[in-house]
Amino acid sequence: MGFKLLSKLLVYLTASIMAIASPLAFSVDSSGEYPTVSEIPVGEVRLYQIADGVWSHIATQSFDGAVYPSNGLIVRDGDELLLIDTAWGAKNTAALLAEIEKQIGLPVTRAVSTHFHDDRVGGVDVLRAAGVATYASPSTRRLAEVEGNEIPTHSLEGLSSSGDAVRFGPVELFYPGAAHSTDNLIVYVPSASVLYGGCAIYELSRTSAGNVADADLAEWPTSIERIQQHYPEAQFVIPGHGLPGGLDLLKHTTNVVKAHTNRSVVE
Rank of each mutant, 00 (worst) to 15 (best):
P239R: 01
E80P: 01
E219A: 13
P239W: 00
L185K: 01
G78A: 09
S160R: 12
A130F: 11
A234G: 03
I201W: 02
H180G: 00
T182L: 14
R226K: 08
S191T: 13
N149W: 05
T114S: 06
G65I: 08
S31R: 10
V189C: 02
S162D: 10
L143T: 01
A87R: 01
D118N: 08
T93H: 05
Y135V: 00
P138R: 09
K102D: 13
G158T: 06
V67A: 15
V28E: 10
V45F: 03
S161F: 13
S62I: 06
E101A: 14
Y202A: 08
V108P: 09
I201F: 08
D64Q: 09
R206D: 06
V45T: 06
G246R: 09
F174Q: 00
E39S: 12
V237H: 00
Y34E: 08
D125W: 06
S223W: 00
K4E: 08
P244G: 04
D77H: 07
L97Y: 01
G78S: 09
D85H: 05
P41S: 13
A87H: 00
A111P: 04
S139K: 12
Y202W: 06
T140S: 07
R120Y: 01
V75P: 02
T109E: 07
P176E: 00
Q229R: 13
V266E: 15
A25E: 14
N211W: 07
L247W: 15
G197Q: 01
Y202D: 08
F174I: 05
Q229Y: 11
T153C: 05
I50W: 07
L83E: 00
H252C: 00
L195P: 06
V237T: 03
G158E: 07
P138M: 08
V257W: 01
S38H: 13
A133V: 12
S27W: 10
K4H: 05
A213D: 13
Y196W: 01
A25D: 14
L73P: 06
A95K: 13
A215K: 05
Y196K: 00
L106S: 09
T60Y: 09
S38T: 10
C199N: 02
A200Y: 04
S223K: 01
S56M: 15
H252V: 01
T153L: 11
V108C: 02
H115G: 00
L96T: 00
D52K: 10
P107G: 08
N184Q: 00
A59F: 04
Q229G: 11
T36Q: 12
R206G: 08
L82H: 02
L143A: 07
S205I: 08
F26R: 14
V126D: 05
L47R: 03
E267L: 09
I201Q: 02
Y231V: 01
T222H: 14
H260F: 08
D77Y: 06
S162P: 15
S7Q: 12
S27C: 13
F63N: 11
S160M: 12
D164K: 09
R206C: 07
D79V: 10
Y135W: 09
T254Q: 11
A129P: 03
R167E: 12
V132A: 06
S155P: 13
D183E: 03
I40K: 05
V189R: 00
Y175N: 06
I227V: 11
E267P: 13
T140L: 03
Q229W: 10
G122Q: 10
P107Y: 07
E44P: 07
Y196F: 14
V189D: 04
E99S: 14
N184H: 03
G198H: 04
L83Q: 02
L156W: 01
L73H: 04
A213E: 13
L24V: 14
S30K: 15
I151M: 09
S160F: 10
S161I: 13
T254L: 14
L127D: 03
L143K: 07
V187C: 02
V146M: 14
